[in-house]
Design a binder for these strands. Sequence first.
DNA 1: CTTGAAGTAACTGTTGTTGTTACATTTATG
DNA 2: CATAAATGTAACAACAACAGTTACTTCAAG
Lengths: 143, 143
Amino acid sequence: MSANSRMTIAAHVLAWMWLNESRGGEVSTSERIADSVNTNPVVIRRLLGDLRRAGIVESRRGAGAGWTLARAPESVTLLDVYEAVTPGPLFAMHRAEPNQRCPVGFGIRPVMQGVYDGVEDALRAELARTTLTGVLRGILAAR
Amino acid sequence: MSANSRMTIAAHVLAWMWLNESRGGEVSTSERIADSVNTNPVVIRRLLGDLRRAGIVESRRGAGAGWTLARAPESVTLLDVYEAVTPGPLFAMHRAEPNQRCPVGFGIRPVMQGVYDGVEDALRAELARTTLTGVLRGILAAR
DNA sequence: CTTGAAGTAACTGTTGTTGTTACATTTATG
DNA sequence: CATAAATGTAACAACAACAGTTACTTCAAG
């Protein structure tokens, strides 16, 4: 599936930012975050751009600028993060339209759509159970 | 995510096979199935190969050969299909190991793994609620 | 022995992610 | 005002997965 690490990186970035802010560290820049994630700062900026569009973080430009959390960390769930960084649906329908003269080809798509809607609802409900606070609590418990 | 249509095609194929078998139609071949799905027979054979490895279908070779369901359709759930045709996990960890000297880089992975395990359990439970029988019932109700 | 179908290798085109360089834009500060 | 530091973004390459296709080998019924 070429599974996606964007969720993981986004959670890492947000947890890092919050820990940094709560400790009163220096401003959060893409370069400093990238050093913790071990990747390129542009990757971080692209991801933070998605999170900014979702209202989860804010950015300032210019010298001494950087990123800050836009919402209280206990109000940010992993569902918010998922919706911010995941583009499309989990499962796709046929690429080419199935044979409409076959009963299966004709009826399969609404049935599967209903199943997929239920699966995505379950996935969303599970992701909504964890907040950014919960993630950081788990991280700090590991020390 | 470049979402995956393999689940959809697999459910289509199995529903088609069962309808065909229950109507006493000609043997199910990859060519006839591909005509309903509107794709290439090799795509169907590859997918059926995965389903055969999972014990959901059986194949016979040689002239007049083809594919048959190996289990009662009411005992086959979409979870069985998902496990047969989906290779990896839904979410991935970091590609490169995060900075172990940073508390976040050190602790993030087990935390996210726990979250992802819960999400996959929820997804599995939801998929397990629908059987092949249920899929075909929905399809035939659409007519 | 012929025929029809599975099984599979190999290749192409498309798409998405990640990593990278480069550069324009913005803004605090000396 | 000039400089420095950081965002914002475009462009590109490497890589992987999926879908589609051609072509071939293997198998077994008749």
